[in-house]
């Protein structure tokens, strides 16, 4: 009994120490370490929030094997620099009040944040945001991608996204006729 009690206390103390830390360390697939504000990470990422709540954060660097260092650096950058100006993910999804804009419009700094990224970095960041359950970052990055798609021809879209055209000429002609209205104007 006494031993059990002692162990419980030790665990308690350790948990308190863990809770005191206000950052968490994340480790990219290529072994680089990044520090991120615990509060921001928990607020912006449902996955990190779950890990923090579940006590599965490793002080020596929580392994995120699916995310490369460049993408993780962008994730951490997004969280750390701008955490304070972002409402929580839950708030965003409940306050959608727009129409023509497909997402809640990114703020100016968020726009700049994604604009400076190369296509590759942007696409990697989408995957990272999706993996980490970062609703807002996913919206902001996907917004950028949807902007890239607007007004583009199917050929241009294939080029940007490196997609192979697997239609036959006849099939494509048929679809185009069916959707002729979508090819007027811009």
């Amino acid at each position: 009994m006494e031993v059990d009690k002692g162990k419980g206390e030790a665990e308690e103390t350790r948990k308190v120490a863990e809770a005191d830390r206000d950052t968490v360390t994340l480790k990219s697939s290529d072994g680089k370490l990044f520090e991120v504000s615990k509060e921001a990470a928990a607020r912006l990422s449902t996955v990190l929030a779950g890990m923090i709540a579940g006590g599965s954060i490793d002080d020596n660097g929580t392994d995120l094997k699916q995310i490369g260092s460049e993408a993780l650096e962008n994730v951490v950058d997004y969280c750390n620099k701008h955490a304070n100006s972002i409402p929580s993910a839950a708030l965003i999804s409940s306050s959608i009040s727009f129409n023509t804009a497909p997402f809640k419009e990114p703020e100016e700094w968020e726009r700049k944040f994604v604009d400076r990224l190369s296509h590759d970095a942007l696409f990697d960041l989408v995957e990272a945001a999706n993996f980490l359950g970062m609703e807002r970052l996913l919206d902001v990055t996907c917004h950028k991608i949807s902007e890239m798609m607007k007004g583009k021809s199917p050929d241009q879209i294939r080029e940007v996204f490196n997609i192979k055209n697997d239609y036959t000429k006849e099939e494509l002609e048929e679809i185009r006729q069916e959707l002729a209205w979508a090819f007027y104007d811009d």
Binding site: S146, M149, K150, G151, K152, S153, P154, I157, R158, F161, I163, K164, N165, D166, Y167, L172, I175, R176, L179, W181, A182, F183
Partner: peptide, 9 residues
Amino acid sequence: SLARCRCVC
């Protein structure tokens, strides 16, 4: 835009 995307693949 969605209609055009149907032509992509």
